[in-house]
Write a protein that binds this DNA or RNA. Structure first.
Length: 415
DNA sequence: TCTGGGGTCCTAGGACCC
DNA sequence: TCTGGGGTCCTAGGACCC
């Protein structure tokens, strides 16, 4: 008889994922300030300019790594509303970083190279590194393109050195296949594993055991807890709570009285490193949405035609997303962001499920009529929620629940 | 010329039903 | 004669995450 396995959960975080993927294609950018964000792909532009400059040779995608530096677009002179998605360390040196407006970044580091985001490429590498992990440890939870939780508990070798041996194996397998590095934290649960993966970046491994709570976790800022954002942190600070250790010293009663039942209990457990959440290997989407920030603020009346066309396009995109992924939904919503950055949402639940662009457009149009439209608009979004798999929808007792009773009646009502 | 896009979950009030 | 109480769905807003 052997002892039951000890629960070991890993959190794996790819290092500077987008930037690293770009460097695989453009190794000539290594060590330079590079910013990723905004606009569209420029490959064709880059290759086109290369072909114009060197007409004797035929340039293809395989030559991306040979494109001279002066062919790359620079941040200098950038106009538009894009933000930085990722910046290389060389660029961060100039004070630019994630979520910063590109125009502001252009002032700080005009010479930085600007690469547009290429989600297709990132998704490709995302699937690759996840497939590699799955060969070794099948219980994986997706946390976006560049992060996963992995349950080491029942993986052969998952207990050795607290998980370090398996973590090292996975790191090496990912690097050998993709050339990308990652950081891994292994701990008794997801909460601690997530914190641990940050301890040793990049390309690091950290092991956290039950007994490490006081030494490794309590000195950290509360903000390091996944789920404590700027607002909660500010509230905690206002009560003199800055570290997780200080949070742990508050009584559960006080936390519940100050933050409410649920949050109070959660804060207490988090501070004591307790987290029973399982690693969830699959989940169904709850909603799908599309939104767009305009190049300039638009007015509901003055720019009605332009706004209407954009609105219709968003509905068509959501409908296409739903259909492509095989879902229908019945709660249709809109989101407006005004020039002062305030946000308003309106939604409406239909008596049937749909993935039809016209039905979505009609319901979203009704929502829009209930929204205040005096201020100029910066962003418009369309959302479909209360999703159901299209296959499941067919099994509903009342088949009309999946169809508009009279689709034509829903098209642009009295519009 | 600050501040993207796509998600999840929670709260809280009101409607409505039993 | 005056007022219960739970459960669920819907809507709006907000915090947070990647």
């Amino acid at each position: 008889m052997s002892a039951p396995p000890i629960r070991r959960i890993a959190h794996l975080d790819m290092d500077a994922f987008y930037a690293s993927v770009e460097l695989l294609r453009y190794p000539q950018l290594k060590g330079l300030p590079v910013v990723i964000g905004g606009g569209r792909r420029r490959e064709d532009d880059l290759l086109g300019r290369l072909a114009a400059a060197y007409p004797d040779k035929e340039w293809t995608q395989d030559d991306l790594g040979a494109i001279p530096l002066d062919f790359f677009p620079r941040l200098s002179g950038y106009t538009g509303r894009g933000v930085i998605t990722t910046a290389t360390y060389a660029a961060r040196h100039f004070g630019v970083g994630s979520a910063m407006g590109l125009m502001k970044a252009a002032k700080l580091c005009p010479q930085a190279i600007l690469l547009p985001v290429d989600f297709a490429q990132y998704r490709h590498y995302s699937q690759r590194f996840k497939a590699i992990i799955a060969e070794v440890a099948p219980v994986i939870e997706n946390r976006g393109v560049d992060e996963v939780y992995i349950d080491f508990t029942n993986v052969p070798g998952g207990q050795r050195e607290g998980g370090r041996v398996l973590a090292r194996l996975i790191q090496k397998a990912i690097f050998d296949d993709t050339g990308l590095t990652c950081s891994v934290g292994v701990a008794p649960n997801k909460l601690l594993a997530k914190m641990a993966s940050e301890f040793n970046k990049p390309n690091g491994i950290s092991i956290v055991l039950e007994d490490d709570l006081q030494g490794l976790i309590w000195p950290l800022a509360c903000r390091k807890i996944n789920g404590i954002g700027p607002k909660s942190d500010e509230k905690l600070q206002s009560h003199g709570i800055h570290t997780i250790g200080q949070l742990a010293q508050r009584s559960p009663d006080w936390l519940v009285a100050t933050f409410g039942n649920k949050t109070g209990a959660w804060l207490h457990n988090a501070a004591w490193g307790r987290d029973e959440r399982p690693v969830v290997t699959s989940s169904e989407p709850v909603s799908m949405s599309r939104e767009t920030t305009f190049e300039r603020d638009l007015h509901a009346v003055r720019d009605r035609a332009e706004l209407g066309a954009l609105f219709t396009r968003l509905c068509e995109q959501v409908a296409a997303d739903l259909q492509r992924k095989g879902y229908v939904g019945k709660t249709i919503g809109i989101k407006l962001r005004f020039d002062d950055f305030s946000i308003v949402t309106r939604d409406h639940t239909l008596p049937y499920y749909t993935a039809d662009a016209a039905a979505i457009r009609a319901a979203a149009g009704q929502c829009l009529k209930r929204a205040p439209l005096a201020k100029r608009l910066r962003l418009l979004g369309v959302r479909v929620g209360s999703l159901l798999g299209a296959q499941d929808a067919k099994l509903l007792s009342n088949p009309t629940e999946t169809l508009p009773h009279d689709p034509n009646a829903l098209l642009f009502p009295d519009d």
